[in-house]
């Protein structure tokens, strides 16, 4: 009530004034409120609910009666060497392998595209094509190419006298094959991010190194790479998180349960199966919470590393 006007005259003005005064004082909260409410509703609530489910024996229907059983699900999950631990192994193998290739290849391609050249535009478009394809279509396309009997891949191999490979049909080869499909699809994104980082660099340090007679490798390793490091780590983070939760190409090519031998069953596929095939929501939630903690751990390690490199 900053003005002296009578309240019964213009009550709304008084209320509005006091609200804007309050809003002004708590500006940062008011502005952040929509985002915070969004986060609470759509992220914190489901997480809390999942955490709760993981402590119950909920199965069949989520709305059916379930009993609170404490950490029993976690005990069962962590001692499950048939499905859970192999799934953890596959998740790490798939993510680690895909990430390593994508970062190395991505860096190399970004460096090639960094300096202007003729036909640059066309090359960039061509490189970005896999990125815009929908993952399920990508999965189906590769299943056709890699079909052991009628696929193009084995036909191409036969021109060089190499025997046909089982690819996706092989128990031992399926996951690695899918890793390469992932690399094919997602390296362009890494290129895009790294290229943005490279273009924003100043030319001076590089020129200075050139004047000092540094070789191309030395200029990259001691000048360019450290400078582009923060962007590099951001790319690892983004791609790493995405690779960990890969689901679409696995499901599109191998179906439920990651194939008959569960040969491409990652944690995500396993949790999905527990929920949707087995209707075992307690166990599924426990797997997801453990998965969540693993991701938090990985991100924490990476950001700690990033902080150190920033110093």
């Amino acid at each position: 009530m900053s003005t002296g006007s009578p309240q019964n005259d213009r009550p709304t003005k008084g209320a509005l004034d006091s609200f804007s005064h309050w809003a002004n004082k708590h500006r940062k909260w008011v502005l952040a409120a929509p985002a915070m409410i969004f986060t609470a509703l759509l992220i914190a609530f489901p997480l809390g609910w999942t955490l709760y489910l993981s402590l119950t024996d909920s199965s069949g229907s989520v709305r059916a009666d379930s009993e609170f059983i404490g950490l029993e699900n976690y005990g069962e999950v962590l001692t499950d060497f048939d499905r859970f631990w192999p799934a953890v192994g596959r998740t790490l193998y798939f993510t680690g392998g895909a990430l390593a290739f994508e970062m190395a290849l991505g860096m190399a391609i970004a460096l090639l595209l960094w300096r202007p050249f003729r036909g640059e535009k066309w090359v960039r478009v061509a490189i970005l094509l896999p990125l815009v394809a929908t993952p399920v279509a990508v999965g189906m396309m590769w299943s056709l190419i890699l079909d052991p009997n009628i696929g193009f891949a084995n036909q191409a191999l036969s021109w060089f006298g190499i025997p046909p490979q089982p690819w996706l049909a092989g128990q031992d080869t399926a996951l690695t094959t899918l890793m390469f499909v992932d690399i094919w699809q997602w390296t362009p994104m890494v290129v895009l991010i790294l290229l943005a980082g490279l273009t924003s660099l100043s030319d001076e340090p590089d020129e200075a190194a050139r004047v000092d007679g540094a070789s191309a490798w030395q200029r990259f390793w001691y000048v360019t790479f450290p400078l582009v490091m923060p962007v590099f780590i951001t790319a690892i983070l983004l791609r790493g998180i995405d690779a960990l939760k890969t689901y679409d190409i696995l499901y599109a090519t191998k179906g439920k349960g990651g194939g008959s031998f569960h040969e491409v069953e990652t944690l995500n596929v396993y949790a999905y199966g527990l929920s949707f095939d087995y209707n075992d929501y307690g166990m599924s939630s426990a797997v997801l919470i453990i998965f969540f903690m693993m991701i938090v751990g990985c991100i924490w390690l990476l950001t700690a590393r990033k902080k150190r490199s920033n110093r």
Binding site: L42, I43, P46, L47, W49, T50, L53, V62, I241, L244, K245, Y247, N268, A271, Y272, S275, Y281, S284, S285, L288, F291, F292, I295, V296, I299
Partner: peptide
């Protein structure tokens, strides 16, 4: 990390 585990919301 929450964004990473998008599947959580399914339940």
């Amino acid at each position: 990390a929450l964004l990473a585990v998008g599947t959580l919301a399914s339940c």
